[in-house]
């Protein structure tokens, strides 16, 4: 085969590869309505921007916890068959570090997000928004992270300073290829 033809062929092949690398989209996504988005947007980032209306107190939360959580997590979140939730504050540099919500988690918003979406394990998403605020307030109060008379809502919950707020180092950038845009 003459060299020219070969070169032309490899050009076509290269073009073919390039097309395969950036395929065309048929564009079949349907616009989502604001109501649709709101219905699924249950995640709560540290700024609390998606927290729902409502509020809950430590006292209400103690009752919610006893009725819905204690059987698995133990009284005040210790000694149950499943994860320990409280205590251990200040143990992270000890030979026996104890990681709990209060000793380890950097953001109170994570507690709200997780309990509302996934707990109680046997009936996730069954608690009211108010009950979730209350049970989070209760859990935090066990170690004095929130005061005993705390009432948490969309404004106050993101302001709670967790004891281990500054205890994390992000490792993500170490994996980012030099060539990758952010």
């Amino acid at each position: 085969m003459p060299t020219l033809k070969l070169a032309a062929l490899s050009l076509i092949l290269m073009a073919g590869v390039a097309v395969a690398a950036t395929p065309q989209s048929p564009g079949l996504g349907r616009p989502a309505t604001p109501t649709e988005v709101q219905a699924v947007d249950i995640s709560v980032p540290p700024d609390g921007s998606t927290l729902p209306p409502g509020s809950g107190s430590v006292a209400q939360g103690a009752a919610v916890f006893e009725a819905n959580c204690q059987m698995c997590h133990g009284p005040a979140g210790v000694g149950g068959p499943n994860d320990r939730l409280t205590g251990g504050v200040g143990t992270l540099t000890s030979p026996k570090p104890i990681k709990t919500v209060n000793s380890f988690w950097p953001y109170a918003t994570t507690v709200y997000d997780y309990v509302r979406r996934a707990m109680p394990l046997v009936a996730p998403q069954s608690l009211s928004n108010n009950d979730v605020y209350a049970v989070v307030a209760y859990l935090l109060s066990v170690d004095g992270v929130a005061p005993k008379d705390a009432v948490l809502d969309a404004k106050t919950l993101p302001l709670v300073k967790m004891p281990n707020r500054d205890g994390f180092v992000s490792w993500e950038a170490r994996y980012r290829p030099k060539t990758a845009a952010r």
Binding site: D83, L92, P97, F104, W105, P106, G167, F168, S170, W171
Partner: peptide, 17 residues
């Protein structure tokens, strides 16, 4: 947060490993 992070001897934890 509670899972898939790794505590180091100095008490800091690696996240997003």
């Amino acid at each position: 947060t509670s899972r898939y992070t790794e505590l180091m001897p100095d008490g800091k934890a690696r996240e997003f490993m």
